[in-house]
Design a protein around this nucleic acid. Structure first.
Length: 268
DNA sequence: CTTTCAGCCTGACGGC
DNA sequence: TGCCGTCAGGCTGAAA
C-alpha cells in the first residue's frame, strides 16, 4: 500500500503508543511474507523493551534492547493499534501485545511486506540513496547521477539508489508539476529542470505527510484514521480525464511495468 | 556496468 | 451467478 508518506504517517501514529513499552507477546500467525519472518522471533523479543521506532526509506525500524525489528508494508500492508480483545481480521499475520494493553497488528493481504529481527543490521538498507526530505537530495544529484543514462526519468526517480521513498503516485505527481514527460530519457534533462523537479518531489511528499498520507484501498494509519491526500492528485489514476491545466485528456502509458499518467501538452 | 522483466500474493473490478 | 483477464501503493534477483 504505502508510499513514503503513508509509512511516515504510520510511524507517527504508532510511536507514542509503543515506545518505552515492554513486549508481552509477539505472535506470528502467518510468517510467509516476502522473506520468512525471523525464526524464533517470539522468544527473542519476549520481555524486551521497545527503545525507539525510526524510518529509513519505507522500512520501519523498531529498536529493542537487543537488536531491532525491520518492518516493511510492501504493497498492501498496514499496522493498526487495537485493544487486545479486538477480533483478528483476515490477513492479520502478526500481532504484538504490549504490557500497557495495546496490541499492534500487522495486516497484509498480498504478503509482499516483511517483519524481521536482527542484531546485525539489514543488507536491504546498505545501498539506499538519500532521504528525499533532506539536504542530501538535490537537483544536482539527479543531474549528475543521470548523465549518460538512457533510462526514462520516471523509473530513474523511483530507483531507491537515486533517492528513496518516491513511489508511483508521487513520481507521477512530481513530474506533472515539473512539466516533464515520464518517458523522457533521464540523461537528457537539464540541471535547471532537475532542480525544479527535486523541489516538486520534496513538496509533494511533504504535503502528503502533512495531510496524513493517501487513503488507498485498505490504508489506515496507526490510529485507524484514514488520510485524504488522494483528493489533490492531479494525474495519478486520472488517465483519460481532463488535464487540470489545459483540459486535454491525460495519457496513460506503461513504463517499467507501472502505469504512468501524464499530459502530452503540459509535460515535455 | 545498465536496463528490463518475471515473480512474489490476494482482491477488486469489468467484460462476457 | 460465475469465470477470466487485468490491474494494484514495492522490491528483488536474474536475464538481456
Amino acid at each position: 500500500m504505502p508510499e513514503l508518506p503513508e509509512v511516515e504517517t504510520t510511524l507517527r501514529g504508532v510511536a507514542p503508543h509503543i515506545v518505552g513499552q515492554i513486549i508481552d507477546r509477539l505472535t506470528v500467525h502467518n510468517g510467509s511474507l516476502r522473506w520468512p519472518v525471523t525464526e524464533g522471533i517470539s522468544e527473542i523479543t519476549k520481555g524486551q523493551q521497545i527503545v525507539a521506532i525510526t524510518r529509513r526509506a519505507k522500512y520501519l525500524l523498531v529498536e529493542l534492547e537487543r537488536g531491532s525489528m525491520m518492518i516493511h508494508l510492501g504493497m498492501s500492508g498496514s499496522l493498526r493499534l487495537v485493544d487486545r480483545k479486538t477480533e483478528r481480521r483476515k490477513h492479520d499475520h502478526i500481532e504484538m501485545q504490549l504490557a500497557n494493553g495495546v496490541c499492534l497488528r500487522y495486516h497484509d493481504p498480498r504478503r509482499f511486506g516483511a517483519w524481521l529481527w536482527s542484531d546485525n543490521g539489514y543488507p536491504q538498507l546498505n545501498h539506499l540513496g538519500p532521504e528525499p526530505l533532506t539536504d542530501e537530495f538535490t537537483g544536482k544529484r539527479l543531474f549528475e547521477l543521470s548523465r549518460k543514462r538512457k533510462i526514462a526519468v520516471k523509473p530513474f526517480i523511483m530507483d531507491n539508489q537515486t533517492v528513496v521513498g518516491v513511489g508511483n503516485i508521487y513520481a507521477s505527481e512530481a513530474l506533472f508539476r515539473g512539466a516533464i514527460r515520464p518517458d523522457r530519457q533521464a540523461g537528457r534533462i537539464s540541471l535547471q529542470r532537475y532542480e525544479l523537479l527535486a523541489g516538486h518531489i520534496k513538496d509533494v511528499l511533504a504535503s502528503a505527510i502533512a495531510q496524513g498520507g493517501t487513503t488507498l484501498r485498505d490504508f489506515v494509519n496507526g490510529n485507524g484514521e484514514p488520510g485524504y491526500f488522494q483528493q489533490t492528485l492531479m494525474v495519478y489514476g486520472r488517465g483519460g480525464q481532463p488535464c487540470v491545466h489545459c483540459g486535454k485528456a491525460l495519457k496513460d502509458i506503461r513504463l517499467g511495468q507501472r502505469s504512468s499518467v501524464f499530459c502530452l501538452t503540459c509535460q515535455r
